[in-house]
Amino acid sequence: MKITSVKSRILSYDLDEELGYSQQYYNRRTAHLVEVRTDDGLVGWGECFGAGNFALGNKAIVEQVLAPLFIGQDPLDREVLWHRAYKMMRDHGQKGMPLESLSGIDIALWDIAGKAAGLPLHKLLGGAFRTELPVYGYGMMLKRGEDLPQRFHDEALELKDRGYAGLKMKVGIGPREDIKLVEAVRDALGPDGMLMVDANHAYTATEAFVVGKALGDLNVEWFEEPVAPEDRDGYRFLTSKLDVKIAGGEVEFSRWGWRDLLEGRGVDIAQPEVCAVGGVSEYLKVLTLAHTNFIPVINHVWGSGIAIATNLHLLAAMPDLPGAMSAVQPMLECDTTPHLFQDEILTEPLDVHGQVARRGTARVPDKPGIGVEIDLDAIKRFEIS
């Protein structure tokens, strides 16, 4: 079996309302899918992290830099191909967009491997420790010109009623204002509802310390990306001084980037993003590093139904940490804001939000590969490049 083509499919559509986080406001939804075809007729699908114009930049890397290294090769030689590609890119970028681009291709190769073997991804990874996963929903995005505390309070009440295991909210407009936002959501959820706070590296370490102290008092489960990913000293300071757990790593890349973060105890919870870290192949190495250092992993999930399905398998195949009769189970992160690419590009929707509403968990796909098939007519409807 040989790879015959590697193609990027960039999808986009306009949102009905503007959404924001600490770094920007946006009004378009974008996804970067990767389609890998073989001479046996098998097709694998992957996804690259990075929205908007970053997706267009990654398309060039996928098709002009990486594709020539993969076409004509055996798609089952995933490890050989990964290292060959990484070696060729090493002088030009060991992080960021090159790794995002490689991630999409690698995920597609695992999809092909599963289809070739007639096995779901979690079987290729050694089996499923669980067949269903609790889901936490993230929403409560920043928005201009509104009474944000009241808006966040009302949205939290609505999401609470849908049955999610926990909720995650955005902050990043300023320490005092952000604490008020968290207080509003805590009021809606009650004293014990699971609440996570995501700053998208909005603060200096000093500011994050002030906010983090308040979050500890408000019984927040974790404080996500409080400072810039480059600020390793800031992360270590916060993990050593705050009661609230520090989470991060969605924009860390490869085992080598993760090694120092984990060994330096920069995070209490590791959040690798499979569509950025280097794909499934590299995610598995990061997971091993994290568990070797006894740091729990809760995957970062941002993307289409392809990313969601891939993460369902990865979380299903993740061992408990620590191994115990009543170990805390991993959770699936799922975007609760309008997101047509979660289901409309699939021939059979995953319907994670509907599953949560009906029974409180999401099932792990059991079909070969990542377990979803792509609706090519939907792809054509949304495709911009």
Rank of each mutant, 00 (worst) to 15 (best):
T131K: 15
N58R: 05
V36W: 00
S385N: 13
V280D: 05
K87S: 11
D217P: 00
R359P: 04
E221C: 08
I374V: 15
E225I: 03
L99Y: 11
I295H: 04
E373K: 02
G193P: 13
E344S: 11
V301Q: 10
V182H: 07
L119Y: 08
N299V: 03
A276W: 01
A307K: 04
V352G: 11
G305Y: 04
R151M: 14
I10L: 14
E273M: 08
F129G: 08
I295D: 00
N219C: 06
E183G: 06
P319K: 14
G279H: 01
I308Q: 05
G248A: 13
V34W: 01
L167N: 07
K160H: 12
L195S: 10
M89E: 09
A31R: 05
S326K: 10
D351R: 00
V185S: 07
L181I: 04
A290T: 05
P134Q: 14
Q94M: 13
A357L: 09
T30G: 07
K160G: 04
P68M: 01
M140K: 02
V36D: 04
N27K: 14
A324P: 01
F341Y: 03
P75K: 04
A309H: 06
D217G: 01
K143C: 03
A270C: 10
A378H: 08
V210S: 15
E158D: 14
G96Y: 02
K2N: 02
H92F: 11
C48K: 13
E132G: 02
E47D: 00
M140E: 07
S8T: 15
M196P: 00
G266K: 01
V244C: 09
V267G: 02
I308H: 00
G248T: 12
R265N: 13
L340E: 09
K123I: 08
L109R: 01
D243R: 14
L315E: 13
E18S: 13
L69V: 03
E132Y: 05
M194D: 14
A156F: 02
G46S: 00
Q342L: 14
R29Y: 07
L261K: 02
L195E: 12
D178T: 11
I298N: 14
G278M: 07
G127T: 09
G360E: 05
G249S: 11
I61N: 05
L102F: 06
A188S: 03
I295F: 08
Y203V: 05
E273T: 07
L102K: 08
E383M: 12
L133R: 03
P330N: 11
L76Y: 00
D366V: 15
E224F: 03
T4L: 03
N219R: 12
I173Y: 08
V6N: 10
D260V: 13
E282T: 03
D351E: 05
D351P: 11
Q150A: 15
G193C: 06
D231M: 05
L346M: 05
A228C: 05
P319L: 13
M196F: 06
V274K: 11
G264A: 14
A128V: 09
E132Q: 15
E373H: 01
K380L: 08
G279R: 00
H83W: 15
A362W: 05
G193T: 02
E100M: 15
H201V: 08
N299D: 15
G118A: 09
G118C: 06
G126A: 12
H201Q: 15
A116Q: 01
G305F: 05
I269H: 06
A276H: 06
G212R: 10
L159E: 07
S281F: 14
E146S: 12
G174K: 10
F253Q: 09
